[in-house]
Design a binder for these strands. Structure first.
Length: 213
DNA sequence: ACATTAAGTGATT
DNA sequence: AATCACTTAATGT
């Protein structure tokens, strides 16, 4: 009998459900940078994140990516839930932002669990809820904020999800996430460094403590 | 030592 | 704010 460590999420679900998850779920470790779900894929399993961060991106015709939001532990991708319920294909791409540990639940448990477990119902609804507001935030940022403000948003979001003020990221990666160009990001970052908001290094950006909370 | 990749800069649109 | 063209600096082989 495989013992799955569900401790990160054990407060979310009733014991009986955890028991069942343990039985039908498969734990998987995914490395940083790995592609989890691509656009157009249909989904057979619901990934429940135990540890790590996943980023959800949308892609335009020319192949440029735009970051929508991050998904942390104890959450799952609402898109996935949507796909499972509606049997549609994924319209987003999910990439691992860090090394990720997750548990895969076959989709056919989705419905029965909704009926059976209150904690599962609220989990699903909560997820839809938070994802929807994340999405709205992304739209707002995109339409109302200037690039430098979006950049700050991005950095603080990233610091929050990774729980670390030291971000390991290149200027190019940021540019891709915000679909801008590297040069512009470099200049904005330089500006922020001069303002004392952060410190730049090769492959690292360190946010100053003042901007944390 | 050389190639590759990340980051900085001035000029131009 | 984006793009070009180029430089400098750090890293990998």
């Amino acid at each position: 009998m495989k013992k799955v460590d569900l401790s990160p999420v054990e407060s979310l679900f009733e014991p009986q459900l955890l028991e069942e998850m343990n039985r039908v779920g498969v734990v998987k470790n995914v490395e940083k940078g790995e592609l989890m779900i691509d656009i157009g894929e249909s989904i057979q399993h619901i990934p429940l994140i135990l540890d790590g961060v996943i980023k959800i991106v949308r892609e335009d015709e020319s192949g440029d990516e735009l970051l929508l939001y991050f998904v942390e532990f104890g959450n799952t991708c609402a898109m996935t839930l949507n796909c499972c319920l509606g049997q549609t294909k994924s319209e987003i791409r999910a990439l691992c932002e860090s090394d990720v540990r997750l548990i895969l639940i076959p989709v056919n448990y989705m419905d029965p669990w909704l009926a059976k477990y209150k904690s599962w119902r609220s989990f699903v609804f909560n997820n839809f809820n938070t994802r929807l507001s994340e999405l709205l935030k992304a739209v707002d940022a995109l339409t109302f904020l200037k690039l430098d403000e979006r950049l700050m948003n991005y950095l603080t979001e990233k610091a929050k999800v990774t729980d670390n003020t030291v971000l390991e990221v290149t200027h190019l990666e940021i540019a891709n996430d915000l679909n801008s160009s590297r040069v512009v990001i470099s200049r904005l970052l330089k500006q922020l460094e001069n303002e004392g908001v952060l410190r730049l290094g090769r492959n690292t950006i360190t946010l100053s403590e003042a901007n944390l909370l």
